[in-house]
């Protein structure tokens, strides 16, 4: 079982997200460590991209801040951040980024570096099932999970995506881009049930979750809840105080999620 899949073994998982280099190198390190201290089960680190088409305004703004602070933002700087994080926590980590970033570094070199630093999975929103073939064998060789997305409009694609998945399956709560919302697609239970018919790979729901109530609801349906924009908002609002706030927020969200019985 992959390190990421193990996260879901004994309880429902809470998975926060923050963007690398927002606001800067040390801030990223401190924020990820705070999320780990707060009890996060896995942290998604977003690698900023100039044109994040799957992301809503909040994460777009974080990417812009991160790239304004360092317009070149070399991938090696981000790997260095992870190395710093690794000195303080062993929490499972995944990267969320767009395929061009991985492509430019080289699929082989990128996934190799991921393994060395304990990055166990990659979420790449612009790499659908049909295009995973160029990266999948290389990622598998280095034990890096390619975490696919399944959406309320995936329909007949669900089974083939789920069968190929390792780590976990990112279930998109509703149509559109990332960002806080008050309503989710109403057939998420059916979606998760369809996935579970063909695979034991765990599921986590993301896009729009920001309150503890929502997280609890989603953790009833799936094996975990992913929260992005709400964490990014805390980083944007609280600056140097963000680690404390993130830790508190994570505690609260984790409590809401973990209370749900495991399937």
């Amino acid at each position: 079982m992959s390190k990421i899949a193990e996260v879901f073994k004994n309880h429902k998982a809470f998975i926060p997200f923050i963007a690398a280099n927002d606001p800067d190198f040390q801030g990223t390190v401190n924020n990820v460590v705070a999320l780990a201290k707060g009890g996060a089960d896995l942290v998604e680190i977003g690698i900023p991209f100039s044109d994040p088409v799957a992301d809503g305004p909040v994460i777009q703004a974080a990417d812009i801040r991160a790239l304004k602070a360092d317009p070149d933002l070399p991938m090696d700087t981000i790997f260095d951040m992870v190395a710093e994080i690794r000195k303080q926590t062993a929490i499972p980590l995944a990267f969320l980024t767009y395929l061009n970033i991985v492509f430019q570094y080289g699929y082989e070199a990128f996934t190799k570096r991921c393994t060395e630093l304990g990055i166990d999975g990659l979420v790449i929103p612009d790499m659908p099932y049909e295009e995973r073939g160029e990266l999948a064998p290389i990622a598998a060789k280095h034990d890096v999970d390619l975490i696919p997305l399944v959406t309320p409009v995936s329909g007949d694609r669900i089974e083939k995506i789920a069968k190929a998945a390792t780590g976990f399956i990112y279930v998109v709560s509703s149509l559109g881009v990332t960002g806080e919302r008050s309503e989710f697609a109403n057939d998420l239970s059916d979606l998760v049930a369809r996935i579970r018919k063909v695979t034991d790979v765990p599921t986590a729901i993301g896009f729009g979750i920001h309150t503890a109530e929502q997280a609890a609801e989603m953790a009833q349906i799936a094996d975990g809840a992913i929260v992005g924009s709400a964490c990014v908002n805390i980083v944007a609002e609280y600056g140097e105080q963000a680690p404390t706030k993130l830790q508190d927020y994570t505690k609260q969200m984790k409590a809401a999620v973990v209370g749900n019985p495991v399937r």
Binding site: L73, L99, N100, F103, D126
Partner: peptide, 20 residues
Amino acid sequence: SDGIFHGMKSMFLQNKTGQI
């Protein structure tokens, strides 16, 4: 140089990291 953006693999003006 070669890259992946806007749904296609093609040629793009980008920096070394892959930012457009």
